[in-house]
Design a protein around this nucleic acid. Sequence first.
DNA 1: TTGTACGCGTTATCAC
DNA 2: GTGATAACGCGTACAA
Lengths: 332, 332
Amino acid sequence: MTIEDVALAAGVHVATVSRALREGGMVAPATREKVQAAARRLGYRPNVAAATLRTRRSSLVGVIVTDLGNPFFGPILKGLETELRKSGWMSLVVQPPEDAAGRRDVVLALADRQVGGLIIGAAEIDDPLLDTADGLQLPVVLVNRGYGERRFPSIVTDDRESMRLALDHLLALGHRHIAHIAGPRSSSTGRARAEAFGDLCRQQGIGDAIIVETPAFTRAAGNEAALSVLDVAAPPTAVVAGNDMLALGVLDAAGHCGLSVPGDLSLVGHNDMPLVDLIDPPLTTIRVPVEQLSRQAARLLIEQMHNADEAVMMRVMMPSLVVRASTGPARR
Amino acid sequence: MTIEDVALAAGVHVATVSRALREGGMVAPATREKVQAAARRLGYRPNVAAATLRTRRSSLVGVIVTDLGNPFFGPILKGLETELRKSGWMSLVVQPPEDAAGRRDVVLALADRQVGGLIIGAAEIDDPLLDTADGLQLPVVLVNRGYGERRFPSIVTDDRESMRLALDHLLALGHRHIAHIAGPRSSSTGRARAEAFGDLCRQQGIGDAIIVETPAFTRAAGNEAALSVLDVAAPPTAVVAGNDMLALGVLDAAGHCGLSVPGDLSLVGHNDMPLVDLIDPPLTTIRVPVEQLSRQAARLLIEQMHNADEAVMMRVMMPSLVVRASTGPARR
DNA sequence: TTGTACGCGTTATCAC
DNA sequence: GTGATAACGCGTACAA
């Protein structure tokens, strides 16, 4: 069942069928109708591979996400897929390997499929992923990760504002000994939040603020890092975690050290991922507007793909503080 | 940069290049090496669209999942993608619409992309998705959903065993008034668990077991259904939920009714999705081996795609009980 | 073992 | 506004 069959059935030439079935084709309304009727009657489906071969374009978008197991990414993926498909794009989802060569290959493999662009929710700073995409001239949008030199369009939340919200909240509760369990410096969010936290502490005259970097945004890493901070004579009275997964690890560590939350230790997470409102204690955290984040990202990519020479831009979304029960007044 | 350029550079014919670069091609080792060297030197990347057009095969697999926002699906997607790509397949991820036409179209769109097969983690009973895939002769594997007539290969957990584990646990704790907040009967798991629960209760001589069906596996639906059961004079002392999301809703309802868990009400979930070990109280639940479930599904699909006339088979995985703190002895 | 030749289904560029 | 025709890049019988 090819375009030729339709042409035959409609009594026109294949070229006319092609035009009639596509948006911009210049065809007489009557002809178009005739063709569409024939196509429908025959159950004709255009051969996507042939069209891709001819046009060098496919209706595919590469979605590169680390750690699909992380509850934070589910909603992001959901928003992305929904919004992309609304515009006719399908999502090729890939988790990149750790090694540089593997990351390069992932982008190449995606490019081989003629993806129109890439949404990357996994970029590290100086990521081979980005260099490769850049070399291929592939439109890219970063979600929730900026890039060191801001070379790529991205949707991010304001990390400085996040830390300000967290810190103000803790200061208002009387805390003065505050630690930050930071995500890896190789990720823009890990780095930006750590730097903002440091700056703000200095501004507030908190000299002894501790910042510990973790190797990954995981519960295990959070636990380990938190132990090094909490398992001492005079532990801090509050901790700001780089994200919610790290916060869960901090919770583990607090339990291990016999510290009650929020009695002995106040804890602020980041992201407000699903279910953190139900854990014990319900987590005070910084909410990022996930739904809008992912929809904006999809839209931005679509714009970039549509208009190749769109200016590089960053859209910054504002986080907000959600106070639950993991924070309380300082005892000391 | 086409296959012809490589042929020129290697001093052989394009056909030879094609053979040399693919697995089964019969080429002299020396020639192959020469060709590979030339290809590498030129940075040649085969045109996937052309190959797809020619062979009518792509290295794409359709992954149809409802509700990417549900924390249960993240890990499943993760295992699926990992395993599929290990065998050279990329995942086209799609969330199906609710309406029949939309579900049909999703499968057609996937088929248009020449996907080798479909992994469906969203099938309803008598789902248009399945009929369409069936009509297209597309290899299909169902994850965590069986099909009414068992026409499709699937990976499932043993729902009867799940319910047996849950019920035995509650009976051992002395409960006799037990309700089941069931998932929709339109889903195989919802139906199977409800039926098993009913059967087992009868076997145990529990005549007054209540089963309430929900319209969806969501927290809100669980809450609503649970309210109808708990907000009465003599509520049951234990509830088995159709899955963890429903269980969270039950928890909400219990709070609303002033029932403490597990003091006044014992609660068993299903799936052991991420973070339910941290909620208050930590949820007793039925663990499904997600990692293996998804990997098995991917492997099964790969087998089906490889060997078209593989017998339809179902692989059943055994669930296990994870006792945490949401269940306790019956007071009455 | 290698080369020849054709076709896969579409779209784009021309004439008309 | 429509028809003819030439690519697009590759895989594969078949012949050599």
